[in-house]
Amino acid sequence: MSKKVVVCAYHNVGYRCLEELLKQGADVRLVFTHEDSPTEEIWFQSVRELAERHGIPYLTTDINEPANVAKVREIAPDLLFSFYYRNMIKPEVLEIPRLGALNLHGSYLPKYRGRVPVNWAVINGETETGATLHHMVAKPDAGDIVDREKVTIAFTDTSFDVFTKVTEAAVTIIARAYPLLAAGTAPRIPMNLAEGSYFGGRKPADGLIDWTKSAVRIYNLIRGVTHPYPGAFTYLEGKKVIIWSTRPLPGSAEPGMVVTENPLVVGTGEGLLEITSLQPEGEDEVAAGGFAAIVHPAGKRFANP
């Protein structure tokens, strides 16, 4: 007999994991998702559209609202899943499903608990991350682990590249774990939080480049927040410039100082950084050569205003 399931989902991970549950024959009775934000670049698949195609009722109001808690109680699901749902789910909801409430997190837990784990892993120069399915408890990303899958992070990967890998890992996990969860035979591995780390969310303002840091650290920040994220930025003669792509080079120069225009090379606290794509505020993104031909930045300094 198929199990009754309630799903909280958003983003590509939410879409693909819900899709996999449906392939597995889960009886999805209700989906909670989010309204798209008008201030956010919506580059990912729509959970709401997937629910509509399959005739599954969905709500964009918070699952924790009393009326929604009552709906979940009425359904009496066997399982509840959270796939990149952005609201913390309260303990009174987590206690409802008979076989457990589980979350798919975009890191190899217990490392990178918390918000935007893929971006943080790239920004910090990690060489691997992963996806983890775990039981939800009151503390975020702290419940028993059911399954994990590692993915590699290449030195040239952006956060988008890694997020795509993590999404595939998430689907692999759901395909493996759902039959075991439905049968009540899935493993539960206690999470050792002492072996991990917790990271908070990021704001666009956190993308400000500190040119006194090494070229590699700046490079990691830039690839960690480049498209489709807001991007890392700096200032040239008081004007904001978003830096979309770079590559670190050997050598030395004063931090922020433009060494050459073509290629566009800038000094850092350790090493040099070649800028290959950038965007002055209010203008279109351009290759560095086109920018340099107009601005002639040689001898000028990228710095905070």
Rank of each mutant, 00 (worst) to 15 (best):
M1C: 13
V6G: 05
V7E: 00
V13E: 01
Y15L: 05
Y15M: 05
E19W: 05
E19Q: 10
K23L: 11
Q24K: 11
D27E: 10
D27M: 03
D27I: 04
R29M: 13
L30E: 02
T33D: 01
H34R: 05
P38S: 13
T39C: 07
E40W: 14
I42P: 02
I42V: 15
I42H: 09
F44P: 06
V47E: 02
E49S: 08
L50E: 00
I56E: 02
A76K: 03
A76P: 04
R86S: 11
R86E: 08
K90T: 13
K90F: 09
E92Q: 13
L94E: 10
E95G: 09
P97N: 07
L99T: 11
N103I: 12
S107C: 09
R113A: 08
R115Y: 15
V118A: 07
A121D: 04
V122P: 02
N124Y: 07
G125D: 05
E128S: 14
T129R: 00
G130S: 08
T132N: 05
T132C: 13
H134M: 12
H135T: 13
M136R: 02
G143W: 00
V146E: 00
D147L: 15
V151E: 03
A154I: 07
D157K: 07
D157M: 02
F160H: 10
V162N: 01
V166R: 04
E168Y: 12
A170R: 00
I174A: 07
I174W: 02
A175P: 00
A186C: 12
P187K: 09
P190T: 06
P190C: 09
A194L: 02
E195F: 11
S197K: 07
R202P: 03
K203D: 12
L208R: 14
K213T: 07
S214A: 15
A215C: 08
Y219G: 01
V225S: 01
P230F: 03
Y235K: 00
L236Y: 02
E237L: 10
G238E: 09
G238N: 10
K240Y: 00
V241E: 00
I242A: 04
W244H: 15
S245V: 00
T246Y: 03
L249M: 14
P255D: 04
N262T: 09
T268A: 10
E270N: 13
L272H: 01
Q279H: 06
D284M: 02
F291I: 08
I294P: 02
V295S: 05
A298S: 11
R301W: 01
N304A: 13
